[in-house]
Amino acid sequence: MQLLPIRQALLSVTDKTGLVEFATFLQRGGVQLISTGGTRKTLLDAGLPVRAVSEVTGFPEILDGRVKTLHPHIHGPLLADKDNPEHLRTLTQRSLLPLDLICVNLYDFGQALEQNLNLRDCVEQIDIGGPTMLRAAAKNFHSVLVVPSPDDYPRVMAELGSQHYHVSLALRREISAKAFRLTSAYDAMIAGYLEKDFGEVAT
């Protein structure tokens, strides 16, 4: 698909810089917003209509927020190839609306390291759902726009504004490469931390 229409977006961010402006821009274009936890609260406080992820999945956040977006009702629409009639048929049969835009950035593991937290508390700052969504959307750039950083908002808004809320394949592919670089660097930072010699650490 060369020009992808943006109709439904999932936003789940740690860095909320520019979030309200970006979400407001999407909402003005008729984009349905879905969100999680603190991101959703920020958007609701700004007066924006936003569905909770738990409404989409039919399942509450569990395990202190460790499991929120890891669900077929998120990853089915996220990984569906919109050029594949069978994929679209499956979404229809399961009453799933396709996801067109994923705006996700990750728990700040680097900040946890700077705070010199103990091992268990540092591990709690390892993001699982975020990288999973980023990688899925980046893989499926033919059908989904991934937005991994507030730095991407101006360019995305400029293109959507000039294309009547459609986005080009070229931009989707370019940002998907950035998303893979980000998740790779994130994993490398975590691996480097876990490889350290903690001495006799039981927790």
Results as ranks from 00 to 15, higher is better:
V147A: 03
E195H: 02
L26R: 03
Q32P: 11
H87Q: 12
A191F: 04
V50K: 10
A136V: 12
S95R: 10
L88F: 04
F141G: 01
C103K: 04
K41V: 09
V146F: 09
Y107A: 11
I128C: 05
N140C: 04
S168C: 01
S149F: 00
H73L: 13
E21V: 10
V156D: 02
E55G: 10
L134M: 15
R28C: 05
F180L: 03
Q2G: 12
V104P: 14
R172E: 01
R173D: 00
P154N: 02
Q32G: 09
V167A: 06
L43S: 08
L79V: 08
R51K: 14
T17M: 11
F180H: 00
R181G: 00
V67I: 15
H75P: 08
S149I: 00
A9S: 13
A202T: 12
L160Q: 03
L96I: 08
L96K: 06
I190W: 00
S54Y: 05
S168I: 03
L99T: 10
A137S: 13
I62V: 15
Y153V: 06
A46D: 05
G199F: 06
V147F: 02
L119G: 11
I175K: 01
H142L: 06
A136S: 15
G192F: 03
L99D: 12
V50L: 13
T42M: 05
T203N: 03
L3I: 08
A52K: 10
T14P: 08
H87R: 11
E159C: 06
L91K: 12
V144M: 13
L48H: 07
F59Q: 09
H166S: 00
V123A: 10
D100T: 07
H75F: 15
L88Q: 08
E124H: 11
D108G: 10
F59S: 09
L106V: 06
Q32A: 12
I126R: 03
V123G: 01
D15V: 09
M1P: 15
R120A: 10
G161Y: 02
S162T: 03
F22C: 07
S12C: 13
E21H: 03
T14G: 11
A185T: 01
P5C: 07
K178N: 02
F198S: 02
L97R: 07
